[in-house]
Design a protein around this nucleic acid. Structure first.
Length: 870
RNA sequence: GCCGGAGUGGCGGAAUUGGCAUACGCAGCAGACUUAAAAUCUGUACCCCGUAAGGGGUUAUGGGUUCGAGUCCCAUCUCCGGUACCA
């Protein structure tokens, strides 16, 4: 080894070439499963270049993959591309570049970046979801879903993103806005393909209990998203009509308190029952709601409004005639779209009753209150029933059960479970997605393409003018001719002339099974059951928590469907889930005309006081102050992003990886900090320099003896430090992948490593341990230095420690008086409780602290502490 | 509102799970090297009182359990995330 200065780029290129030449990270499928480990990071959308979130996500996954390999596991660690999607199409419109070209150029660039980071992927298994082969296999699976009856077409109100001009699934609507573009989502009537995800609602919910290695936050979010609630359906006859309104309620015990009814304005019954006098008012009300976004209509600030329909419903339990309203807060697609209103015991109904001056009836009595006292607010807790006929006096939870039984006997109600979870609308009015394999014929209607006629391939020659779906204008797909008449296209032989489905699939469909395809990417059919079941479930899945209710729920659904279609015996795809935090950075802004203008941290100078606290920030351009904003996720809009490429160019991949892992534990947000990056770089360089400077020391054989037998006291001390560091690093990795702690241990060990002063063999043993701990995090430099000191980097295993080596001959015991430390005394190690007590009592410090008086109590804990209670 | 999670130096964060709080890094300060600066190296460093020896205090706040609490229990406050007319 030459005594060169550390050249990260040269070292990293060398090892990356070495790994590639060796196929170092390829795996076989015939190793016993218990010796295997499947670690997967959520694959990226090829947006152009890596961002810091990718660097963090993949550094975490790679450190785990390498750690597991060093522990003897045969590790599957694949990578690919979630490559269908809207940005490609937008790029086509903006830059007149075909989505395919744009996408695959991005993939090439980003693959290069991933390789430059030295991530240990099994590249032979790489694929992109827009590859014709993957799209083909997905269409096959899709037809299996069709056969299973899990796909249907329905015209319904859909979430329409005004930003993307396409449909969104419920999960993709965040705060009434589009999850990608933050633009308003409106309701629109459209025929759509749905996947019957709700067929698995019960299983999806129940299995959450068994996902013990998932973060609680995700489990709770999924539970809430599925939203199971148990209650009753009750039929109310409509006065002077033949019709019946069926309502859903979770509080059947309040049935005697119903004083009015609320229907969703869109409810089909509204038209049938509305009286002539009220028809105009109802129409006006609907008009007002029309076109309002979900947010406008049901948001927190929106007012509770309703219009009387002119009709009355009859309460089946007591014959009460109650007015029926159309109300904006009643949702057509939850429950039955109709609500029995009990203002005495429902906050919303209470407010509505107050506004429209409707009667409020008390039927549940709050414990310790007077039955005649007027309600100042809805009482929604458990109490005793009153004014409820034969149920008076029962507790509300007991009455609930009894009343449902009574409904069922009377035939006007039944127990009912309702879910918040909806079927998955997968139609997207877009070109750059997987075509949904259907044709429409006049005679035959919507028909799936026969399996032998697959794949349905996207045509390349389409025009992107930004208006509608380009497929609708393609000669072999078109639905309308230039004169506006419907075009019929001869598709495959065997079908009558028909038009193709021009909608493509939601891209979440591709990410719902890619983890299974990695196990058999060369399979001629969709999946090879043997290999799928060999590798699945994924042992550890790493990604952002933002997918808690979208991707992670779709993937769980899909795995269950795959199992039921015979492709696997595994019903849960991900055994353990690690959700890494966001990469965040400080923001700087000025208010200009009421809007915030953000400045890049690079263009801002920060002043600190003598303690290092930030007191002022000024813009470099004009020297004027800027406001120091919150620390936020790196984003274009906040102008606080850092390009990882610059980081790699300046410091190298190992530094980028090391900082990503060192600055915070994986699950926490990571605050990006230039000085911290420099600190990590400094550590690596000092390590490098130390190894170069003492090349003669590493000629020695590594010391393998005990601390006790070490050549000197100082040698014994570093041997103990080494064992301690290995122990702490191992525990940090095993517990929750706290790389920050493992790296801190490397630094601690480094700070005690004094070649030249200490025994050569001892130093070599300590350095070896340090490099092995460091290797999963900073693999290039660790490999180079291991090789440099004459060891086989490829064969390096995770070091082991010896518990008995952690303790010195003498232990420093803190001597406490009632928990306050008064002195420290040195006592021999290995004493049991009694011997320790004797030794303490004989110690002069003990005499000094107690003043010779016999304490009330003396607590000694071997190896830990001595506490005196005077 | 409801459901989670979290509050530890100037900052990011440790703490062997009830046993020496502040490991490790950053920033700071002092010194060395340098004509000088950067870089690098060495040292210092929780806060308060004290010239010092030393003393007192400290893990958001208040209480409790315990010989002993960052860790367990109760209450309060703050922040972050999710979710919300879900009947």
């Amino acid at each position: 080894m030459s005594d060169n200065a550390y050249d990260a780029s040269a070292v990293e290129t060398k090892w990356q070439q070495h790994w590639e030449a060796e196929d170092a990270f390829e795996v076989r499928d015939d190793v016993p499963r218990e010796q295997c480990y499947y670690v997967l990071e959520m694959f990226p959308y090829p947006s152009g270049k890596l961002h810091m979130g990718h660097v963090r996500n993949y550094s975490i996954g790679d450190a785990i993959a390498r750690y597991k390999r060093m522990n003897g596991f045969h590790v599957l660690h694949p990578m690919g591309w979630d490559s269908f999607g809207l940005p490609a199409e937008q790029a086509a419109i903006d830059r007149d570049q075909h989505p395919k070209k744009w996408t695959y150029e991005n993939i090439d660039h980003m693959r290069g970046q991933l390789k430059r980071m030295g991530f240990s992927y099994a590249w032979s298994r790489e694929f992109a979801t827009s590859d014709p082969d993957y799209a083909h296999r997905e269409q096959q699976l899709f037809l299996d879903l069709v056969e299973k009856g899990l796909v249907y077409r329905k015209s319904s109100m859909v979430n329409w993103s005004t930003g993307l001009n396409t449909v969104l699934a419920n999960e993709q609507v965040v705060d009434g806005k589009c999850w990608r573009t933050d633009t308003p989502v409106i309701q629109k009537e459209l025929p759509q393909w749905f996947i019957r995800t709700t067929a698995y609602s019960e299983e999806l919910l129940n299995e959450i209990d068994n996902l013990n290695d998932w973060p609680d936050a995700v489990r709770i979010m999924q539970r809430n998203w599925l939203g199971r609630s148990v209650g009753a359906e009750i039929d109310f006859k409509i006065d002077a009509h033949d019709d019946t309104i069926t309502v859903f309620t979770t509080r059947p015990d309040t049935i005697f308190g119903v004083t009015f009814m609320s229907l969703a304005p869109e409810h089909a019954l509204v038209d049938k029952i509305v009286s002539d006098e009220q028809r105009a008012a109802i129409e006006a009300f609907r008009e007002e709601l029309q076109g309002q976004s979900e947010e406008d209509r049901t948001g927190e600030k929106s007012e509770k409004k309703g219009v009387f329909t002119g009709a009355y419903a009859i309460n089946p339990v007591n014959g009460d005639k109650v007015p029926i309203f159309a109300a904006n807060f009643v949702l057509a697609d939850y429950g039955t779209g109709a609500v029995m209103a009990v203002p005495g015991h429902d906050t919303r109904d209470f407010a509505f009753a107050k506004t429209y001056d409707l009667p409020i009836k008390k039927v549940i009595l709050e414990d310790g209150t007077d039955a005649d006292a007027e309600l100042s607010d809805a009482f929604t807790e458990v109490g005793s029933l009153i004014n409820s006929s034969q149920f008076d006096g029962q507790r509300s939870d007991v009455a609930k059960v009894n009343i449902i039984k009574w409904f069922e006997e009377g035939g006007f109600g039944r127990e009912q479970v309702t879910w918040r979870y909806r079927d998955w609308g997968i139609s997207r009015q877009r070109y750059w997605g997987n075509p949904l394999p259907f044709v429409f014929g006049e005679e035959m209607g919507a028909v799936p393409i026969r399996k032998q006629d697959l794949p349905v391939c996207l045509p390349d020659d389409v025009v992107f003018d930004g208006i509608g779906n380009p497929l609708e204008k393609h000669p072999t797909w078109a639905t309308t001719a230039n004169d506006g008449s419907e075009l019929k296209v001869q598709t495959q032989s065997g079908y009558e002339p028909a038009r193709r489905e021009t909608d493509t699939a939601d891209t979440f469909l591709e990410s719902s099974w890619y983890f299974a395809r990695y196990t058999c990417p060369d399979e001629e059919g969709p999946l090879d059951k043997t290999r799928v079941d060999h590798w699945l479930p994924v042992d550890l899945y790493v990604g952002g928590i933002e997918h808690a209710c979208m991707h992670l729920l779709y993937a769980r659904f899909f795995q269950k469907a795959l199992a039921d279609m015979g492709y696997s015996d595994v019903r849960e795809p991900f055994k353990r889930l690690l959700c890494q935090g966001m990469v965040v950075k400080e923001t700087y802004f000025r208010e200009e005309n009421g809007a915030k203008v953000y400045f890049s941290p690079n263009d801002v100078t920060v002043e600190k006081d003598e303690k290092g606290k930030v007191v002022k920030a000024t813009l470099n351009d004009d020297g004027q102050p800027v406001t120091v904003g919150r620390i936020e996720k790196m984003s274009k809009s906040k102008n606080n992003g850092v390009d990882p490429q610059e980081l790699i160019d300046q410091y190298g991949a190992d530094t980028a990886r090391l900082f990503s892992l060192f600055a915070a534990p994986p699950e926490k947000d990571l605050e990006w900090n230039e000085a911290g990056v420099a600190g990590c770089s400094r550590f690596l360089r000092r390590l490098w320099d130390l190894v170069q400077k003492h090349s003669d020391v590493w000629q020695a054989d590594a010391y393998t003896g005990t601390a006790k037998d070490a050549p000197s006291k100082a040698d014994a001390a570093i041997i103990r430090t080494m064992h301690n560091s290995i122990k702490r690093a191992t525990q940090a990795m095993e517990k929750d992948f706290s790389f920050n702690v493992a790296i801190a241990e490397c630094m601690t060990l480094f700070n005690e490593l004094k070649p030249g002063e200490l025994d050569d063999g001892v130093c070599k043993a300590a350095l070896n341990a340090l490099l092995c701990i460091l290797k999963p995090m900073a693999p290039h430099i660790a490999s180079e230095l291991l090789t440099g000191i004459g060891l086989d980097a490829g064969a390096a295993t995770w070091p082991s420690f010896d518990e008995s080596e952690l303790v010195a001959d003498e232990i420093e015991y803190p001597l406490q008086v009632k928990g306050k430390i008064k002195a420290k005394i040195m006592l021999p190690s290995g004493l049991d409780k009694n011997a320790l007590e004797e030794a303490v009592k004989a110690h002069p410090e003990y005499q000094a602290v107690t003043g010779g008086a016999e304490p009330r109590k003396l607590i000694v804990v071997p190896g830990k502490i001595v506490n005196i209670v005077p």
